[in-house]
């Protein structure tokens, strides 16, 4: 293992349940649980910002897309929302 490699991503792993899905030795889920306090505050902030943004778009008559996150996250996901 490279010294700087994330311990959670190198080498064989169990079939993962991912964060929020109970699974044995799921390192990402464990990380999310450990960060839950600070993460919850960050999420609340982000969601408030996104609501304000959508409201502002509505006030100026711009299309108000409700599918903000339905496109895939790729480097070409440059569609304005």
């Amino acid at each position: 293992m490279r010294k700087d490699a994330e311990p959670s991503v190198t080498g064989p792993r169990p079939a993962s349940a991912g964060a929020g899905r109970e699974g044995p030795a799921d390192p990402l889920a464990e990380r999310v649980r450990a960060a839950a306090g600070g993460l919850g505050r960050m999420v609340s902030r982000a969601e408030a910002v996104q609501r304000e943004r959508a409201d502002a778009a509505g006030r100026r008559g711009a299309p108000r897309w409700t599918d903000v996150f339905t496109t895939q996250f790729t480097e070409f996901s440059n569609r304005p929302r």
């Binding site: 964060a19 929020g20 899905r21 999310v32 999420v43 982000a46 969601e47 903000v68």
Partner: peptide, 13 residues
């Protein structure tokens, strides 16, 4: 943050 919010709710999938 969108993904991690879902993870906090147990809805990551």
């Amino acid at each position: 943050l969108h993904y991690l919010a879902a993870a906090l709710r147990g809805e990551a999938d």
